[in-house]
Amino acid sequence: MTMRTRALLYSFLTFLIICLDYSVAFGQDSDGIFRTDRINALVLVVIFSAAILLYTKWAKEGKPLFLRKIPGLNAVEEAVGRATEMGRPVLFIPGIQELDDIETIAGVSILGRISKITAQYETPLMVPVRYPLVLAACQEMVEQSYVEMGKKDFYDQDIVRYVAGEQFAFTANVNGYMMRERPAANIYMGAFFAESLLLAETGNAAGSIQIAGTALPEQLPFFIAACDYTLMGEELYAASAYLSHEPVMTGGLKGQDFVKMLIIICIIIGVVLVSFGMGDTFVSWFEQV
């Protein structure tokens, strides 16, 4: 199915859903089902989606797009290489949240890239998880990577293992693994909370090279203090696209940068208007988003 066919199909389905909702609404005696107070958010979503689709289209057409280097991601291959040379495993943790958390999905996506590298080098990999749904997704992902790299024989179902459902039981188990097995590289990608420093400090004590990525600002200082490389905020979401080197994926990142530029312009306009006492309407439009 081509991109255009898919887009047409999706548009039709969206239209169908909206029509269904309106048909139900017309049958109801209510004040209206549409949240008009959230129109501003709709405008932003439309602009955002358009920018991403446009840049993706340009990327597909072969237009060169510049992406700044992310040292933490460039270090991934180096870390796996180090583990291979030392004959020690790579530890990957896709955060401690459920699969409905976008940070976990980002972590699982990055795991796909990393497991391809470990499969290629035949490096042992260990992925402890906290939720069974994440277990199923990660097992599928890692198996697919090993198959794609032609290393199905090296795949073991227990590469990805359910460790514990409780936050600190999970941490205790992983810390114990780090001290016993001393993995050469620890990669933490996803949502982490109070256990972030417990994990990263133990990894540091075990002498592992450590790469972390999270979108939670509260946990970033801990990772920065204890890890060799840290992906901050949006870098985590960009990681899978960045590692893929696929133009279609990187196009989305450029679209995101474009919207970020728009937001910066809006902030500057807001600061100027508020400074001159004329920004009430402008600011309130954003406050309701």
Partner: peptide
Amino acid sequence: AALGAAAMSLRIMLGIERTYMG
């Protein structure tokens, strides 16, 4: 991070990013 999450969600919804399926 919010923009990154939204962009990633959009990529997944439109099938541009399929890494979560391996």
